[in-house]
Nucleic acid binder design. Structure first.
Lengths: 360, 360
DNA sequence: CTGAAAGCGCTTACAG
DNA sequence: CTGAAAGCGCTTACAG
């Protein structure tokens, strides 16, 4: 069971090591008959070239690194599905770095990644500092960021259009006649949440509605806090109580719905709730959640494609010009209409706000 | 920015390559002063040894492979958290193989894994053929299986105690007075589902209740099918209708609850529903789901520990004796009581079954 | 189209 | 405690 080497294959097929190597690398300069023969010998002996030796000799690996903030997020899992789909058929394997604690994030970056183990890096960014990545990128390592990203970072990226998604969510609510729409925020240090909140505000304003600060609640993606803040919302006097809630995530929406139920409010009869993400259970809960779907799988695919393109065709790596184009892909979201949003309750429908919307 | 090599460090610190290598490998035969000095030089120049060269020279990598059936499952994500927690502090990195399609599973195994890229393999098994793994294992590659596994496979493994979990779930229901308890099955080709079903049957029998075949429904983890089969359950005449449902997964339970709502039945007043898994949203939905928690994170930790132990301390790899002990760890589950199960509806409570349970 | 040779960056006996 | 040398298994000009 001793591992076979290229030398063994050479001996077994009666050619030199060089020739074996050439067939390994699909060189056109090998006689077709020779190649077939060598290939057959390799197959018969279940020969697999040593990964390490190949990497050393070539100076590059068929490995791309993927840095994620834990796998338990629906987002990360979905992105990975997309990434895996494209890396799979490109012969690349992915090595996974779970950057759990911020502490060693920096060292992770320059420890492992400088060891030239990886020919490219996919980062599902988080709250981590981005400078080390910028550094790496300008040193010539292909890097692409997925999901949250600060607009001013000079790195290729693919994100979802959170602003537009929020606009769409709000339009849905607005068209159902809602005017007092609350917003339960996510983690506001995230760019994506900031964008969603801007969308909330802008949608309101362009409908001629002055945002009521009292209807904005922090949630920080913490179920406890979300429930507490939602309770405040639902404890408001009937004429001030929101008739709809825009939650910054589906799980946030669940907690809002729980609070609603505790307050004796029915969804969607008494209060409409819209989420963001479209996680798997969104269709399964009662009532099925209306939400904004983020195209995570596609985002993963596109990101992987961008990265592979940047890595280039194995050989002609243009060391000198690190592809100064920094593509930013912003992917559209979609409104998934299920049952958690309904028309504004009739008993309260036309209320005396200072302005009237131009919408139905 | 040219990558520094051990030679550069040697030159910069005025010692030989060997010495640098020795400090790299924490050899005790290096003068402490020399070591400090070399270390300082390395740090100052941000030197990182080449992964490929180290792997080639040592004949082994600090990489462990993890084969998973897609990341979108809660289970896989949680297991990975555990795995990452232990590999992280052991200096191992994990390379992730997402075995999406069965087709290339076999080739995946012997392609990549034989290339000696990986010093151990963690497999979150699925419906995949296990023979290639057994082969690999007897060839000396440490392998450990996580989660589903056939009892007769001669491989180290860590699984959850699905049988006992089912027993616990059923006991909970039984103690609430339920006698007509339905079971909505998962994918019955999975060992775990078979175990859960055995638990269901045995719990019933040891409570003196003859299982009613009509109360067992296939679901196969398919929401559509689950809903359809549940509808049949709830359409039964009131005296034959189940008062409780044991679902083989939380998501299955969600679909059952949806069907119940559609049938005008309240949970838990009219029908109790218990799940299996304890996924994140289980606490968030309405009503919060009572369920059996599987210790996925711990399972991942234990599996990683077993694997690292099998890999051993880098050097003394006992090539000859491939550790013939094949530990099987079966980890306990826990009952998480929330609000989806209640006492049997009073209007129906003492019904004329042929047998009476000995329980309250 | 094929072979001999040097080299990728480390590790590991072996001398000293 | 430290150095010179061979070797890990490939790849890649360079001859032929």
């Amino acid at each position: 069971m001793a591992k076979l080497t290229i030398r063994d294959i050479a001996a077994l097929s009666g050619v030199s090591k060089s020739t074996v190597s050439l067939v390994l690398n699909n060189s056109p300069k090998v006689d077709p008959a020779t190649r077939r023969h060598v290939l057959a010998v390799m197959r018969r002996n279940r020969y697999v070239p040593s990964f390490a030796a190949t990497a050393l000799a070539k100076g590059s690996t068929r490995l791309i690194g993927m840095v994620v903030p834990g796998l338990s997020w629906h987002m990360v899992a979905s992105i990975n599905i997309g990434v895996a789909a494209v890396t799979e058929r490109s012969g690349f394997d992915i090595i996974l770095y779970t950057a759990t604690n911020d502490r060693d994030y920096g060292s992770l970056i320059d420890r492992i990644l400088t060891s030239s183990m990886v020919s490219g890096l996919l980062v599902v960014s988080h709250e981590q500092p981005l400078e080390p990545l910028v550094q790496l990128h300008s040193d010539g390592l292909p890097v692409v960021l997925v999901n949250t990203i600060d607009a001013d970072v000079a790195l290729p990226s693919v994100t979802a259009d959170n602003y537009d998604g929020a606009l769409t969510a709000m339009d849905h609510l607005l068209q159902l006649g809602h005017e007092r729409i609350a917003c339960v925020q996510g983690r506001m240090v995230y760019r994506c949440c900031q964008d969603r909140y801007r969308g909330y505000l802008d949608a309101l304003r362009s409908a001629g509605i002055q945002p009521d600060p009292e209807l904005t609640k922090p949630g920080d993606f913490l179920p406890e806090q979300i429930r507490a803040r939602s309770r405040e919302l639902f404890a408001l006097p009937p004429d001030q109580r929101p008739t709809a809630v825009f939650a910054h995530s589906d799980v946030t929406a669940y907690a809002v719905m729980t609070a609603a139920a505790e307050a004796g409010l029915r969804v969607p009869e008494d209060v409409s709730v819209i989420g963001f993400d479209d996680i798997e259970s969104a269709a399964q809960i009662r009532p099925p959640l209306t939400t904004i779907q983020q195209p995570f799988v596609d985002m993963g695919k596109r990101a992987a494609e961008m990265l592979l393109e940047a890595i280039g065709p194995a050989d002609d790596v243009p060391e000198e010009e690190p592809a100064d184009e920094r593509p930013r892909l912003v992917m559209p979201t979609s409104l998934i209409v299920r049952a958690s949003c309904g028309p504004v309750p009739v008993t309260r429908s036309p209320r005396g706000r200072s302005q009237t919307t131009s919408k139905a």
